[in-house]
Design a protein around this nucleic acid. Structure first.
Lengths: 153, 153
DNA sequence: CTTGAAAAATGGAGGGT
DNA sequence: ACCCTCCATTTTTCAAG
């Protein structure tokens, strides 16, 4: 995989921070002319180093000010229960991330809700109807101190 | 804040999924011509609904295949200890997210590491030298099932 | 990697509903 | 207030060397 030189890594770093940079600006930063930078970026895209380009939306501005980490224990641990759980979870719009984890719980969800009332509704009505769930434990985020959204290269 | 109509929300949804969509493509999706779409997007940017545009980098391709949620308890809970902790944490490149949380622990970190050896080094040498830390508890991610990076509007 | 040129998108002026 | 059409400028994209 190490077909990446310092300039490539720098391009990933820059685009991971701000994907609106023009090829010209990127070229100035990595001390190359626009054309090779253009080709390098295209290569990083096709080889999959860059997965996609997205706009980051301000959840608080849209009245989604509550972030909760919801730990989930399944009733049983066979494969079909697990995959059914993932399938059910994928449909819940409040769940922005879902991880299969080690430890006392099986899954960790990052949930975005408008407020506590909304979260309560989410737990009781949405998670409540996912039958594979045994128990849950919620950890509330009081403050987001850092979020880079990307690996720090 | 509800100065956003259905077209604005749709634009946020589309750009949150793929920020490389051209104004022309967006216009076709929301049934408007390019100019008003261009103005709407600019307004969403200046008003802060769109925070920034980024490229998502594939951490696994860069040999950062291990994700860990690291719970942290501080030694004491006065404000200066807390802000010093945040300051120290901000400098650690392995930490991609940091939250002040409710419950048994004070902070939750999302950490990206190359492998278990790297993570061990991170805990012992990097976290180990952050003096405000009382205790830690690591939860390892076995599989990322879902990550939308954005609120689901 | 460079130069250079075609194609496309951005961003703005002016007019219409 | 909002949208449209048209046009200049900039950027992207892709040749050939």
């Amino acid at each position: 995989m190490e077909e990446l030189d310092a300039a490539d890594l720098q391009l990933l770093r820059l685009l991971g921070e701000n994907s609106k940079m023009t090829v010209k600006e990127l070229a100035a930063r990595v001390n190359l002319s626009p054309s090779p930078v253009f080709e390098r970026v295209k290569r990083l895209e096709t080889k999959g180093y860059i997965k996609k380009y997205i706009a980051l939306i301000d959840a608080e501005k849209l009245n989604y000010g509550l972030m909760v980490f919801c730990n989930i224990k399944l009733k049983q641990h066979d494969k079909s229960i697990g995959s059914q759980f993932v399938k059910d979870i994928m449909l819940l719009t409040e769940v922005v991330e879902c991880y299969n984890i080690s430890g006392d719980y099986d899954f960790l969800l990052k949930v975005l809700a408008r407020d506590m009332k909304h979260y309560q509704d989410f737990v009781f009505n949405k998670l409540g109807s996912v039958t594979s769930i045994g128990s849950t434990h919620s950890t509330f985020v009081m403050c987001e101190n850092k979020n880079t959204y990307n690996i720090n290269i």
